[in-house]
Design a protein around this nucleic acid. Sequence first.
DNA 1: GCGTCGACTGACTAAACAGTCACTTAAATT
DNA 2: AATTTAAGTGACTGTTTAGTCAGTCGACGC
Lengths: 192, 192
Amino acid sequence: MQSESMDKREKLLQTALELFVKQGFNDTPTSKIAKEAGIATGTLFYFFPTKDELIISLYLKLKGQATESINVALPEVKSTKEVIKTYYEQSLKWSLRNPNEFSFLAQFSNSPYLKKIGADEISAQIAPVLRHFRLAIEEQQVVDIDVNLLYALISNQVFGVNQFLSANKFTKKEQHNIIQDTFFMFWKMIER
Amino acid sequence: MQSESMDKREKLLQTALELFVKQGFNDTPTSKIAKEAGIATGTLFYFFPTKDELIISLYLKLKGQATESINVALPEVKSTKEVIKTYYEQSLKWSLRNPNEFSFLAQFSNSPYLKKIGADEISAQIAPVLRHFRLAIEEQQVVDIDVNLLYALISNQVFGVNQFLSANKFTKKEQHNIIQDTFFMFWKMIER
DNA sequence: GCGTCGACTGACTAAACAGTCACTTAAATT
DNA sequence: AATTTAAGTGACTGTTTAGTCAGTCGACGC
């Protein structure tokens, strides 16, 4: 039956995502998640021992999905500039394709829940990207700044542009142009 | 006694800030806030009819403080570039001087609580800054982009640099240099 | 056709919660 | 001196919450 029936664990995570984004962690009791998902509360705690672990599982799953989706498009063959451009575009496109997921990640990352995750667990995920950035700096293609600062700059520019694009209604074409233009600006900022 | 005894309303907001930043909205009951502040729970609800209103009051107070502290340093006489630079520096310095306040604002802004505030209330607060940015664009000192996009870019770069500076231990001098350098980069990005 | 095992259930409970209310206190007003 | 008013109290309550538990159910080997 695995192929036909919805995996209940997944269904719970999916429902939790929607409710957390809409109502916040505070105002979404586990009972509501289970009810909305059409699953017994006992089942929720069968899969996730506590509400905190449900929230953290959801974060790790979504963070993993985003990272994977972005990294898949980063083949080694491209030039350094192309790698950074691809990272920028893919991050932005993922965030626009998955607004709920992105919103949840932002909410989680800016809450005290973030501290409940091991720092290594985070740095492990961004390590491959940092390697690319480090390379770009060593090749002297890019200004000589701390690689973590570079990472913070690009991430937060992606966040800002997402904010702007989400707050307005643009056509696909307009969106594409804004992404291109803002990357051009970003590159101007960091190129040596 | 007003000058000697701590204003209880203020004391409650102050205590709430610390607990919200440390534990999140979820895990900070009103009873804990009152107890920690050494004030009866009834008094909390005397000043703030609901927990939500306490949270929103705190947000509005802090957002106002930040805005005021930044705007005070924006005299009209300066050149356009100086105005943007001052805005950048002041934002960053306020965030570094007030880490708890900044953390709370980030947590609030990325949570569903934000939607409980009128959009006008927010746009009213950033209006003066946007006027400056609009002027800079009209003067052709800066690339011709939507002023809201410019605002998003500068805000999020401030956020990113704050993240980087907070995550590391720098001397005042190093901090100052990083602020200068990143503004220089930012200006390179947006100058025409 | 018996036993076990993992997925799943939902009524239940103990604790915690936001918010109430009858009351006190102290200062200002009349 | 009497009265009103506003600030402040904390025990209390009805509700909600996260989490439990005794047990159902079908599958699958034996």
